[in-house]
Amino acid sequence: MISEAERTDSGACRVSLAEFEGPLDLLLYLIRRDEMDITLVMVSQVARQYLEYVRNALELNIDLAGEYLVMAATLTRMKSGSLLPSRSGAPEDQDDPGKALLRQLILYRAFREAAAELRESEGAWRDVFTPPGERERFQEGARREEAGREAGSIMDLLEALEALAKKDQPPTPRIIERPALSITECIQGLSSALPGGGRVSFRTVLGENRDRRRVVAFFVTVLELIRRGWVRCRQESSFGGITLERTKEWA
């Protein structure tokens, strides 16, 4: 049983909350029965203490992790739930916050203890050292480059200098060609190939000249005309021929 002194020892709560690894850790600390099975009764016995810890922390404006409040809500729900008779027919495990919490506590405690054992192994193996092998000289893959770079030879310096010198030079001018065809020109071309109410295939519009830029220019033009509602287009199958039809909107 928990002694009365511990129950009211709220002074200790104030200093120690930061030492816990979250609400489950705090609950386990309050239960303090490491060697025994944790029971629902034990959880509900310490629920009040838990809530007191959280209340104290809030009063002192301690930046409390949200998880502590979620747990407080769960515990409150458990307490109120235990006052009500359980609905018959309802699957107990599914909805019972107490049982879920119990399992969580049991599982967490097991991991906490495993972690404690790992800590011991860590301590023991910190005094053990292994040969570094040839890791400096024979790194695999990308790491080799890194290591080489770290070492830094005179060649690396020269390369870096050269790269800097290149950066300082004005960029070589590039000639950007004007597109061979403007959209306006394409619309004129389409207009003459496509009399009012008539239909024509995209291939016919392009004619013999299948220069890529010309194809793209005409294609973009067709998209523009579709957007304006001046042409309708049809394509029977993927990658098949496209048939264009002039609408009344294209005056």
């Binding site: 991991f111 972690a115 790992l118």
Partner: peptide, 15 residues
């Protein structure tokens, strides 16, 4: 050395 949080996290991942 690893903190308790790191050790616990590592334990859960490991198992």
């Amino acid at each position: 050395r690893l903190t308790r949080a790191a050790l616990e996290t590592l334990a859960v991942v490991a198992y």
